[in-house]
C-alpha cells in the first residue's frame, strides 16, 4: 500500500522584482510504501526541506500532486483528512518559554484532538515527565527535541515527516533521541519520510534513500544497501597527521582523498587496496603520521563520494 505518492511536483519561489522565479524542486516523483522509512538526502540547496514542506502542505506546489494514503493533500475536499494522517516536525517548532510542559502539551493536545495522557508514557521514558509543571524556558535543546517528538507521537500519525530533528544537538543528545525513536514500537509501524544532513542519523533510521541533486531533481531512489553497493569502495583508511603536509604529497599516496585539516581519508576498493594504501602512507608520510585507522565505508563516505567524486 502506498502511503505517500509524489507525482511530478514542481516548486518555485519568486526571484524578486523583475527576476524570474527560482525553481527549487523540478519534476520530482516517488512513492513511499506503508511502513517504509525513507530519507531525503542531497547537497545543500538541492531542495530537500522544500520538498518535505511541500509534501506537508506548508507550501503549495506549482505543479504536480501529492497524495497521502490516496488523499490529495491540495484538494480542498481531501486536504483536511489527509493532514490528519501525518505529523510534520522540524527544529523550527519552538515553544512559548513561559508556559509549563503541562500547559504546552495541553495546548497541542487540544489542537490535535487527542487526550494529553496519550503522550505521558513517551514523556516518562524520556524523563521529561519529571518536569511536567516546569516552564520550558529551562529546557535544554535536547529536551526540546524530545518534546517535538512527543508532540508528533501525541498525534498518533500514520506518516511522520521529520525535518532534521536532531540538528544542533551534540552527539550524546543525538544518540539519545535516535535511540528513543528506534526503541518505540509506534515508530516501527510508522511510514517515515525524513530530511537529515547527518548520514549517521539516516543510516540508523532509514532503509531507503531518495537522493536529490542540484536543481531539485531526483538523482536516485534506492535502498540503503543498493546505494552502498553502487560505491566502488569498501574501506576507508583514515590518517591523522602529527604536522601539516602539502596537498600534493597527500594526493600522491592514493586517490580519492578526503581531507579536513590534519586528517586524511583514503578510499579502498578491497583489502588489497587497503594494504597498498597503508604501505604508501608509511612510506611517503612516514613519521608525520600520528596514527591511522581502517574501517568499512559508511553512509557518510557514500554521501561524500557521491557529492564530491562523481
Amino acid at each position: 500500500m502506498q502511503a505517500v505518492e509524489v507525482e511530478n511536483v514542481v516548486k518555485q519561489f519568486p526571484g524578486g522584482w523583475r527576476r524570474p522565479p527560482v525553481r527549487i524542486i523540478d519534476d520530482v516523483s516517488f512513492t513511499v510504501e506503508k511502513g517504509q522509512h525513507v530519507a531525503i538526502i542531497g547537497p545543500n540547496g538541492c531542495g530537500k526541506t522544500t520538498l518535505l514542506r511541500t509534501i506537508a502542505t506548508i507550501y503549495r506546489p506549482d505543479a504536480g500532486k501529492v497524495r497521502i494514503f490516496g488523499q490529495d493533500v491540495f484538494n480542498w475536499r481531501q486536504s483536511e483528512r489527509s493532514r490528519r494522517a501525518f505529523a510534520f516536525i522540524s527544529p523550527a517548532l519552538n515553544f512559548q518559554a513561559k508556559l509549563t510542559l503541562r500547559q504546552t502539551i495541553e495546548f497541542f493536545a487540544t489542537v490535535l484532538q487527542k487526550p494529553p495522557e496519550t503522550v505521558v508514557p513517551f514523556l516518562k521514558r524520556t524523563g521529561l515527565y519529571a518536569m511536567w509543571d516546569r516552564r520550558l524556558e529551562g529546557f535544554s535543546e535536547g529536551q526540546k527535541a524530545m518534546l517535538r517528538l512527543a508532540i508528533a507521537f501525541l498525534k498518533q500519525p500514520r506518516v511522520l515527516f521529520l525535518d532534521e530533528v536532531v540538528a544542533n544537538l551534540d552527539l550524546a543528545r543525538r544518540e539519545k533521541v535516535i535511540g528513543m525513536l528506534e526503541e518505540m514500537e509506534a515508530f516501527q509501524d510508522l511510514t517515515l519520510l525524513m530530511v537529515d544532513h547527518d548520514p549517521f542519523v539516516v543510516d540508523r533510521l532509514c532503509e531507503r534513500i531518495l537522493v536529490l541533486k542540484e536543481g531539485g531533481r531526483v538523482h536516485k531512489f534506492t535502498s540503503l544497501h543498493e546505494l552502498m553497493d553502487e560505491v566502488p569502495y569498501r574501506f576507508t583508511v583514515e590518517v591523522n597527521l602529527k604536522r601539516d603536509i602539502d596537498d600534493k604529497l597527500a594526493e600522491k599516496v592514493a586517490q580519492p582523498l578526503q581531507r579536513y585539516e590534519m586528517t586524511l581519508r583514503y578510499f579502498a576498493a578491497d583489502e588489497q587496496a587497503v594494504h597498498k594504501i597503508s604501505r604508501r602512507v608509511l612510506k611517503l608520510l612516514g613519521e608525520r603520521v600520528q596514527d591511522y585507522v581502517t574501517a568499512p565505508v559508511s553512509l557518510k563516505d557514500v554521501y561524500y563520494l557521491m557529492r564530491e567524486v562523481n
Partner: peptide, 14 residues
Amino acid sequence: ASRGTIGFLVTNNV
C-alpha cells in the same frame, strides 16, 4: 512565526 508554530498548526488544519 518566531516560535515556529505556524507550520505545525497549518499542517494540523489550524
